[in-house]
Amino acid sequence: MWVLLSSPGAVLPRAARYVHWGVVQISLTNLLIIAAMLAVFVLALLLPFPADRKSERRERSGVQR
């Protein structure tokens, strides 16, 4: 109870920051999450997938199985 009275911020979260762009308004947090999802998606397309050791050995020796 003391915590509640002394620091209401601990119970009531601060108002979120919003980004306004014409009729579009989005909270900064949501915008950053969408940006992170886009970044991860692009990285998933571009980054090479690690090959397992068996595949690497096969590729080096040129043997297909």
Binding site: F41, A44, L45, L47, F49, A51
Partner: peptide
């Protein structure tokens, strides 16, 4: 399937 895009 050996691509990160197939992991999600």
């Amino acid at each position: 399937v050996r691509s990160w895009v197939y992991v999600f």
